[in-house]
Protein backbone atom coordinates (compact mmCIF):
# COMPACT_ATOMS: atom_id res chain seq x y z
CA UNK A 1 0.00 0.00 0.00
CA UNK A 2 1.58 3.26 -1.09
CA UNK A 3 0.71 6.90 -0.50
CA UNK A 4 -1.17 7.15 -3.79
CA UNK A 5 -3.39 4.21 -2.82
CA UNK A 6 -4.13 5.75 0.57
CA UNK A 7 -5.06 9.10 -0.99
CA UNK A 8 -7.12 7.36 -3.66
CA UNK A 9 -8.98 5.33 -1.02
CA UNK A 10 -9.64 8.45 1.02
CA UNK A 11 -11.12 10.24 -2.00
CA UNK A 12 -13.28 7.20 -2.78
CA UNK A 13 -14.49 7.03 0.82
CA UNK A 14 -15.52 10.68 0.75
CA UNK A 15 -17.25 10.20 -2.62
CA UNK A 16 -19.33 7.29 -1.31
CA UNK A 17 -20.35 9.20 1.84
CA UNK A 18 -21.26 12.21 -0.31
CA UNK A 19 -23.44 10.01 -2.56
CA UNK A 20 -25.34 8.66 0.47
CA UNK A 21 -25.85 12.21 1.74
CA UNK A 22 -26.84 13.74 -1.59
CA UNK A 23 -29.43 11.04 -2.27
CA UNK A 24 -30.99 11.70 1.13
CA UNK A 25 -30.61 8.16 2.46
CA UNK A 26 -30.66 7.26 6.13
CA UNK A 27 -33.93 8.68 7.34
CA UNK A 28 -36.07 6.94 9.90
CA UNK A 29 -38.98 7.93 12.03
CA UNK A 30 -40.76 6.00 14.75
CA UNK A 31 -44.37 5.74 13.61
CA UNK A 32 -45.76 5.61 17.12
CA UNK A 33 -45.50 4.21 20.65
CA UNK A 34 -46.07 0.63 19.51
CA UNK A 35 -43.04 0.74 17.22
CA UNK A 36 -40.99 2.17 20.08
CA UNK A 37 -42.13 -0.67 22.38
CA UNK A 38 -41.32 -3.25 19.73
CA UNK A 39 -37.81 -1.82 19.28
CA UNK A 40 -37.14 -1.74 23.03
CA UNK A 41 -38.32 -5.31 23.56
CA UNK A 42 -36.30 -6.63 20.65
CA UNK A 43 -33.09 -4.93 21.75
CA UNK A 44 -33.23 -5.25 25.54
CA UNK A 45 -33.67 -8.91 26.41
CA UNK A 46 -36.11 -9.61 29.19
CA UNK A 47 -37.75 -6.22 28.88
CA UNK A 48 -41.54 -6.10 28.50
CA UNK A 49 -42.89 -2.73 27.45
CA UNK A 50 -46.12 -1.28 28.82
CA UNK A 51 -46.25 2.17 27.23
CA UNK A 52 -44.02 4.64 25.42
CA UNK A 53 -43.76 8.18 24.21
CA UNK A 54 -42.19 9.14 20.89
CA UNK A 55 -40.09 12.29 21.02
CA UNK A 56 -38.54 14.76 18.62
CA UNK A 57 -40.39 13.82 15.42
CA UNK A 58 -39.55 10.17 15.88
CA UNK A 59 -35.87 10.66 16.65
CA UNK A 60 -36.08 8.99 20.01
CA UNK A 61 -38.42 7.55 22.56
CA UNK A 62 -38.88 6.62 26.19
CA UNK A 63 -40.35 3.21 26.88
CA UNK A 64 -41.68 2.07 30.26
CA UNK A 65 -41.55 -1.58 31.29
CA UNK A 66 -43.74 -3.81 33.44
CA UNK A 67 -41.17 -3.91 36.24
CA UNK A 68 -41.10 -0.14 36.65
CA UNK A 69 -38.00 -0.06 34.43
CA UNK A 70 -37.26 2.23 31.47
CA UNK A 71 -35.55 2.02 28.11
CA UNK A 72 -34.43 5.00 26.08
CA UNK A 73 -34.20 4.84 22.28
CA UNK A 74 -32.16 7.12 20.09
CA UNK A 75 -31.94 7.20 16.36
CA UNK A 76 -28.60 6.23 14.87
CA UNK A 77 -28.75 6.55 11.10
CA UNK A 78 -31.72 4.53 9.86
CA UNK A 79 -32.16 2.50 13.03
CA UNK A 80 -32.55 2.88 16.77
CA UNK A 81 -30.19 1.97 19.55
CA UNK A 82 -31.55 1.17 22.99
CA UNK A 83 -30.29 1.40 26.56
CA UNK A 84 -31.95 0.25 29.71
CA UNK A 85 -31.80 3.09 32.22
CA UNK A 86 -30.40 2.08 35.58
CA UNK A 87 -31.72 3.93 38.64
CA UNK A 88 -31.06 6.48 39.90
CA UNK A 89 -31.80 7.94 36.46
CA UNK A 90 -30.21 11.31 35.96
CA UNK A 91 -32.34 13.79 34.03
CA UNK A 92 -32.23 17.52 33.43
CA UNK A 93 -34.82 19.65 31.69
CA UNK A 94 -33.42 22.17 29.27
CA UNK A 95 -36.71 23.93 28.74
CA UNK A 96 -40.41 23.13 28.97
CA UNK A 97 -40.32 20.26 26.52
CA UNK A 98 -36.69 19.10 26.25
CA UNK A 99 -35.22 16.53 28.61
CA UNK A 100 -31.60 15.36 28.79
CA UNK A 101 -31.21 11.79 29.95
CA UNK A 102 -27.88 10.24 30.88
CA UNK A 103 -27.71 6.74 29.41
CA UNK A 104 -24.99 5.72 31.85
CA UNK A 105 -22.81 4.68 28.91
CA UNK A 106 -20.16 7.17 27.86
CA UNK A 107 -20.27 6.40 24.15
CA UNK A 108 -24.02 5.94 23.88
CA UNK A 109 -24.01 9.31 25.51
CA UNK A 110 -26.68 11.67 26.73
CA UNK A 111 -30.01 11.48 24.93
CA UNK A 112 -31.93 14.68 24.35
CA UNK A 113 -35.65 14.10 24.01
CA UNK A 114 -38.09 16.71 22.74
CA UNK A 115 -41.53 15.96 24.16
CA UNK A 116 -44.76 16.95 22.41
CA UNK A 117 -45.64 19.32 25.29
CA UNK A 118 -44.57 20.45 28.74
CA UNK A 119 -47.14 18.29 30.54
CA UNK A 120 -45.86 15.04 29.05
CA UNK A 121 -42.27 16.08 29.75
CA UNK A 122 -43.10 16.68 33.43
CA UNK A 123 -45.06 13.45 33.75
CA UNK A 124 -42.32 11.27 32.25
CA UNK A 125 -39.59 13.03 34.19
CA UNK A 126 -41.45 12.28 37.40
CA UNK A 127 -41.89 8.64 36.43
CA UNK A 128 -38.16 8.34 35.71
CA UNK A 129 -37.17 9.94 38.97
CA UNK A 130 -39.40 7.60 40.93
CA UNK A 131 -38.27 4.47 39.09
CA UNK A 132 -37.12 1.60 41.23
Amino acid sequence: MNLLQIIGSLVAVLAVIAAVKLLGLGRAQLAGPSEACENAEAMVHGFTATDAIVCGEGNGALVAGDKGDFVVLKRLGSYYAARKLLPPISTAERDDTVLHIESGDRYFGRVNLTFPDAASRTAWQQRLEHSA
Binding site: V20, G26, R27, L76, G77, S78
Partner: peptide, 8 residues
Protein backbone atom coordinates in the same frame (compact mmCIF):
# COMPACT_ATOMS: atom_id res chain seq x y z
CA UNK B 1 -33.97 4.80 2.20
CA UNK B 2 -33.03 2.91 5.37
CA UNK B 3 -30.41 0.78 3.62
CA UNK B 4 -27.65 3.39 3.96
CA UNK B 5 -27.05 6.36 6.22
CA UNK B 6 -24.15 8.81 5.95
CA UNK B 7 -22.85 8.40 9.53
CA UNK B 8 -22.92 4.63 9.38
Amino acid sequence: TRAYSPGD
